[in-house]
């Protein structure tokens, strides 16, 4: 899975044009986040995302729900600290799906190294407006420490946009995960391209 740029998409069908534009701009993983949504809505929206991601040859990951990930034939499932334990999810999805795990401190990141997960998300690195993750800001220094100490790929999350993505690669993360930067951008394709360009610039 190409972990460079994740777009975390709430289950809102009106966002589909933005998702498509962002994928054209280089988003490599679309993550469906449906907490609080009706499962039937999630399933329908997820099917549209699967279609879109298949057409563009990018990955689909489902947040929190291994059952939906399997039903949608997603490429992965992303877990938070209060979701099902990674070992149980691995048993449910087998080895063909990738598992990501959100972490918010060095201790959580180190614990995740022992879990059967393929990559870690770490953050929030910068202040963020989305209220979904109320954890304290970790900053770039802790991100760098985590990236150095863990033996799995680290994706940075929290307040990332084209304005700061150049700092992420330097800190050792292989990719970034964004919500607001792409949802709010007047031109999500351009914003995705800009995030990636600055992320890969040394």
């Amino acid at each position: 899975m190409d972990l460079r740029l994740h777009f975390l998409v709430p289950a809102d069908p009106s966002l589909l044009p933005k998702v498509e534009a962002a994928v054209e701009g280089g988003v490599s993983v679309v993550q469906l986040r449906g907490k609080g949504s009706d499962d039937r809505t999630l399933l329908r929206f997820g099917e549209r995302l699967r279609h879109l991601t298949d057409q563009h040859g990018v990955s689909l990951v489902v947040n929190d729900r291994p059952d939906l990930a399997l039903l949608l034939e997603a490429d992965g499932v992303h877990l938070g600290q209060s979701d099902l334990p990674p070992a149980e999810v691995r048993r449910l999805v087998g080895s063909s799906l990738q598992i990501g795990l959100s972490t918010h401190s060095l201790a959580e990141a180190l614990a995740a190294c022992e879990a059967p997960v393929d990559y870690l998300a770490f953050g929030p690195v910068f202040p963020t407006r989305s209220k979904s993750d109320p954890s304290p800001i970790t900053g770039l220094r802790t991100l760098a420490e985590v990236a150095q100490k863990v033996n799995k790929p680290v994706v940075a999350i929290g307040g990332i946009s084209s304005a700061n993505s150049h700092q992420i690669r330097r800190a050792g993360a292989v990719g970034v995960a964004v919500i607001e930067a792409l949802v709010q951008a007047p031109d999500p394709a351009e914003e995705a391209r800009a995030i990636l360009e600055r992320q890969s610039a040394r």
Binding site: D38, D39, R40, L43, D67, L68, L70, L71
Partner: peptide
Amino acid sequence: GRSLPPAVARRLA
């Protein structure tokens, strides 16, 4: 009513 429809759930379980 807000869960997976039983026909879909059956495929998985």
